[in-house]
Design a protein around this nucleic acid. Sequence first.
DNA 1: ATTTTGTATTAGGTATACCTAATTAAAGAA
DNA 2: TTCTTTAATTAGGTATACCTAATACAAAAT
Lengths: 227, 227
Amino acid sequence: MNNITDDNYLKAIYHLGLTTNEKLVSPTMLANELLITSPSVLEKIKSLIAKKYITYSKKKGITLTKAGKDMAVNVVRRHRIWETYLHKHLGFNWDEVHAAAEDLEHVRNEKLIDKIFEVLGHPEFDPHGDPIPNKQGVFPKSVRRALSASVMGCKIIIVGVTEHSDAFLKYLSDIDLNLNDKLVVIKIIEFDGSIQLKGRNNGIIQVSKIIADKIMVRCEKENCRCK
Amino acid sequence: MNNITDDNYLKAIYHLGLTTNEKLVSPTMLANELLITSPSVLEKIKSLIAKKYITYSKKKGITLTKAGKDMAVNVVRRHRIWETYLHKHLGFNWDEVHAAAEDLEHVRNEKLIDKIFEVLGHPEFDPHGDPIPNKQGVFPKSVRRALSASVMGCKIIIVGVTEHSDAFLKYLSDIDLNLNDKLVVIKIIEFDGSIQLKGRNNGIIQVSKIIADKIMVRCEKENCRCK
DNA sequence: ATTTTGTATTAGGTATACCTAATTAAAGAA
DNA sequence: TTCTTTAATTAGGTATACCTAATACAAAAT
């Protein structure tokens, strides 16, 4: 529970480092991510450097040290385990788990997190399809790609999303797209990249390219052209 | 998760108000309870007064307002619900639940606490036998007294303890005294107030007066002289 | 090459939660 | 009642985490 601030900075740096490919992580980016000002970030950067969690130079940006990355991955691990637990064992919806996990991720009780992880049967993915790192910080591998990269006939299974906003997750629920759903791509509208899917009880679901970009899937059709 | 400090001060004031009967709650007592210095307490007192959680005067001591008491009772509620959950659903021992609950009690997610409370079947007492207040802050009634107030022949059931230190709880486990155990008082050594109990499989357990004072029981023998 | 624009950085300020050292006040003992 | 002890209080200090305003810098545009 101590150092919630450190947790949040390191998590944000880690996250930005992954999502903002190529470009470095700058103080301004961090400030935007954390909804604070850049002088505040600059100050905190000094303290995180002193604690040897990060390095920083204007040209190289902010990078996590081994210790910093370990810390960040541990926060991610706790977050995702709690999300899974809230969903699987406490009946929280896909779009409700995040807020609660934001708090629970800071509870550093190893026995607690180990226990709920065990009760869950050591899952590899959380309710958003995001991989849960093991205690050593190693992430499980998964063959996943955006739904938008599908071709006609793909037999896809939804394994995750790249946007976690309540609004987005709610929308997916509303159009009856849920994690682990199996669907078949029945039409691709070349004009705008929209995709039509056939789901359970043959219901037809159509999603725009914008949505399809954010839905991660695995294609289970053998020798599918999508590969 | 915000205002963990407020939580801890209010909880401590509430707790001292109950245990330290008669005497008022003074800044020094609070300082000792929280393991900080009295100037720090004095400063915080001002802020809690400003927030209308407490009142303070040298002669009347520190008292909780309605709002302050509600806040404190809510922390106690969350703490005890988590303790119960950790014990009943996650396999934590009697003496392990407290530390984890110290952190979890600050997670202010109503749906979460409601849910685990529901999953537990709306229990009235936690693993230490302490009553869990309902959402309105009302505590369940229980007829409980110290084990030390027993007479020969009392058929007692252990419903709680008044000390929660790991060492004490560990000791009770070690001599095989656990919550909800049923025992019979077979000897009272007047000389020092020690009590001998017969428990399951007729094992004899002896506790000193000091211990017996801290163990809360209910006597289930009809018309027992202890009443 | 110079200006514009945006990012990085410094300077200085606030609030919170703690501290030590010193002072005041009250209560108990002589 | 006066001394002594303890509790309450004030004064002043530190560290953290935030802020605004001002300045320095660097990259892009003219």
